[in-house]
Nucleic acid binder design. Structure first.
Length: 276
DNA sequence: AGACAGCCCTGATTGC
DNA sequence: TGCAATCAGGGCTGTC
């Protein structure tokens, strides 16, 4: 499940391999992958033909490739999206949705089993693709304001786990790293945002930053073949998980049996004793 | 306006 | 054995 660390790992891989490369052709094999493109799949393909990739960036779980046309190729991996760098002639992947063919003969494949992900060509506005102006800065963004984030968290009456998954105040946190940050902070996932003190909220956000930083260093978290980097390699942060997937096992801090429950419609793993 | 349920989707797993 | 129900979940949409 790609969250910020996985998206960042993939962005780096795509950038290292394809910055400066010129797209000859974009082949859309599944229309759902371009459903966000209001102008349609034809527009998508036409906008990319002949475009050169000049760089890449990311906000939260969205990444984009900047193009010499001034536009951006905006990508969201959804639940199962992957990019594969293809340098030799191989049969199409079973879940290949979009193939970018480059003038040097290489291809960049967007593979997505569950089709929650997608791509679109969009205009840039103030250094950001227009379509994601509603996505808040993530904790690594120079525009991220920690004090303001603390206040916004404390203004919410929802359960703090729900709040962490909301991309509108701070982005990039998904289900896995939300559970990890809450465990590290010793905070119950169902505590209301407005019942989290200022110092505790700041503590939680610093744990968010730490866990995301460590996960980027580890190349992300892989449970199965649904997350690999652009070269097909897995991340190894799953070995460092203290909460996610540990229901029924002893808490690594207090030995209490970890529990699983549903919060905000998402599986939530927590220690009922030391997360308060 | 903020909160939240519902929906999209495939494949592995579980249940009868 | 086979089919159906369940689960995984990011983010957009519609409703209150």
């Amino acid at each position: 499940m790609p969250e910020l660390p996985e998206v960042e790992t993939i962005r780096r891989g795509v950038d290292a391999n394809f910055r400066g490369a010129e797209i000859a052709e974009a082949d859309v094999l599944h229309q759902r992958a371009v459903r966000r493109q209001a102008e349609g799949g034809e527009f998508f393909a036409q906008s990319l033909a002949g475009a050169r990739i000049t760089g890449s960036s990311r906000r939260g779980k969205y990444m984009w490739l900047t193009l010499d046309s001034g536009q951006a190729l905006l990508c969201h991996l959804g639940m199962s999206g992957q990019f594969h760098a293809v340098t030799e002639k191989i049969p199409a992947h079973r879940h290949l949705r979009i193939a970018l063919r480059f003038t040097d003969g290489r291809e960049l494949w967007f593979v997505d089993q569950r089709t929650f992900g997608g791509m679109e060509v969009t205009e840039m506005a103030d250094g950001l693709p227009e379509r994601i102006s509603h996505i808040a800065p993530d904790v690594f963004d120079p525009a991220y304001d920690a004090d303001r984030a603390v206040e916004r968290l404390r203004a919410k009456r929802s359960e703090v786990k729900r709040v962490l998954l909301d991309q509108g105040w701070v982005s990039g946190i998904g289900n896995i790293y939300a559970d990890e940050a809450l465990w590290r902070a010793g905070l119950s996932p169902v505590r209301s945002g407005h019942r989290v003190g200022t110092a505790k909220a700041a503590d939680l956000l610093s744990h968010v930053t730490d866990v995301l930083t460590e996960a980027v260093t580890a190349g992300g978290t892989s449970f199965d073949e649904l997350y690999v980097n652009v070269n097909g390699e897995s991340g190894y942060f799953d070995r460092s998980l203290n909460a996610y997937g540990r229901a029924g096992q002893p808490c690594r801090r207090c030995e209490t049996v970890m529990r699983k429950r549903v919060v905000g419609g998402r599986a939530t793993h927590h220690c009922p004793h030391c997360q308060r």
